[in-house]
Design a protein around this nucleic acid. Structure first.
Length: 437
RNA sequence: GCAGGGGUUGGGGAGUGGUUAAACCCAGCAGACUGUAAAUCUGCCGCUCAACGGCUUCGCAGGUUCGAAUCCUGCCCCCUGCACCA
């Protein structure tokens, strides 16, 4: 039995998980009584999705598990304009090459989450560049633009802020909502997709699409709306911060940018108060399992069972069992025992995928190089002074041994097995320096 | 366009001729404590230097001064009123 079997429908499940912020009238009813096709758009403005995107991604996953058909849309077309929703400033236009590159990267990241082989409800992946880039302006204005009043468009909370600013909003960005509505219409007509999900910041855009479909196709045969939408809440931590806003930016789903280890650590370190809500949002664990974790957090919070489970589940979902194993190995190595006891092979294996700095052998010959210089080039400090200060405070380690003098020479003899150096800053930040081949 | 206000170190925000690398708060970093937590406490938090010190910073460019973030001139940008939007 699947974990979702305990809920009679996906709307109920999303509600329980705290993942339902808003829904059009009739949306829940439709989800409960029909098998729908639902799409969610992903913006290609960055080269990778980040943890915040897990909410909509898991939304699609849950929909599919309840028998609905998910469509993941990557915005190769809309990305050329840029969504102005809740943004203070006009966006910088991106080059088409950059957009296409990002689209491809995001497409690859999304694929593992969905089942494209399912018999009755296989997932689909679409790119709105396929239709938007060849849209004819005059036809678009006659067929689509005519259904929108500027009055309504200006009333959207998501763009209101821009009118009062001096910098204003360009016509280009202002028309964004038409494009997203047109996407919805296109998917409705091509794939019978009558549902759209998205973050609460997308609510206005979603309603625009629902509205457009009604204007063009009228109400459904039973008098109910044909198209629906649901919105996910903006996730915040118990301390009120935007989810993902951690040190060094939001963790991404790209292992090259955020190693599985770092992703694991990010979730392992969430506050007690956030652990269970996050487990609900980001994992497929069922009510019984989550209930157990909830109890565990209350009775023995020091064990951090919920955090462990959360980190484990998310890391496995994003990076697979292999990624999780690696994250656990690194974690055990760093927080379990003595780092100095690890072999170079183990170190390398364990840090594979995280950022590694290379140095040439001649840089370590003779008097070698100053530790402070090495640490800066390895990214363990912002400047020589920064490293020096940290050393003075007792926060720097080379190969597991506390560094007493920032200017100590690092020579070839310091290399673990002649090829690796491990710099640790503070309790949990590690950098690896490798001898270039 | 006119009038008024303003652009200071990551953010907020003091500072109106020297004692200011620049108060204070937040964020960040390190240490202690701990559960790889929260809270708390301590130190740090432009670059450089073992240190003394040196150097570069207060929108941009000049200038006045022994000496300027602080005064003057020009320029750029932002905010607030008013006007304009035939």
């Amino acid at each position: 039995m699947t974990p979702s079997a305990e809920f009679s429908n996906v709307a109920e499940e999303l509600e329980w998980r705290g993942a339902l912020f808003d829904a059009t009238p009739g949306a829940a009813h439709a989800l409960a009584t029909e098998k729908v096709t639902c799409y969610n758009g992903f913006d290609p403005s960055a080269s990778s999705l980040h943890v915040g995107n897990l909410v909509p991604i898991m939304g699609l996953v849950r929909l599919q598990r309840h028998g609905h058909t998910p469509i993941a849309l990557v915005g190769g077309g809309t990305g050329m304009i840029g969504d102005p929703s809740f943004r203070a400033e006009e966006r910088q236009l991106m080059s088409i090459e950059q957009i296409d590159e990002n689209v491809e990267a995001i497409r690859l990241q999304l694929e593992p989450f969905l089942d494209f082989q399912a018999k009755s409800n296989p997932a689909r992946m679409v790119n709105n560049a396929d239709w938007l880039r060849k849209t004819n302006l005059l036809e678009f204005l006659r067929d689509i633009g005519k259904h929108f009043t500027v009055n309504t468009m200006m009333g959207r909370e998501s763009v209101k802020g821009r009118f009062s600013r001096d910098s204003g909003i360009s016509f280009t960005e202002f028309s964004y909502q038409l494009l997203q509505a047109y996407d919805f219409l296109t998917l409705y007509e091509r794939h019978n997709c009558a549902f759209q999900a998205g973050g609460s910041d997308q609510w206005g855009n979603i309603l625009g699409g629902v509205d457009l479909i009604r204007r063009i196709h009228g109400a459904g045969p039973d008098g109910r709306p044909r198209a629906h939408g649901i919105a996910y809440p903006l996730i915040t931590s118990s301390s009120g911060e935007k989810f993902g806003k951690s040190t060094g930016g939001a963790p991404t789903l790209d292992p090259k940018q955020t190693s599985p280890y770092r992703l694991y650590q990010y979730f392992l370190n969430v506050a007690d108060a956030d652990a269970v809500p996050y487990v609900k949002l980001f994992t497929l664990l069922n009510q019984v399992q989550i209930g157990g974790l909830d109890a565990a957090v209350k009775t023995e919070p020091e064990k951090r069972e919920a955090q462990r489970k959360l980190a484990e589940e998310v890391t496995r979902t994003v990076h697979g069992q292999g990624g999780l194993d690696q994250a656990l190995r690194v974690t055990r190595a760093f927080f379990g025992g003595d780092i100095a006891g690890l072999s170079a092979d183990e170190m390398e294996d364990v840090l594979d995928g995280s950022s590694v700095t290379e140095i040439r052998r001649d840089q370590l010959s003779g008097d070698g190089m100053k530790f402070s210089e090495l640490a800066v080039s390895a990214g363990a400090g912002k400047s020589g002074g920064d490293v020096r200060r940290t050393v003075q405070q007792g926060g720097m380690y080379l190969n597991g041994v506390r560094v007493e003098d920032a200017d100590r020479a690092v020579v070839a003899g310091d290399l673990i097995e002649g090829r690796l150096l491990v710099i640790r800053r503070g309790r949990k930040s590690y950098s690896l320096v490798k001898l270039a081949d």
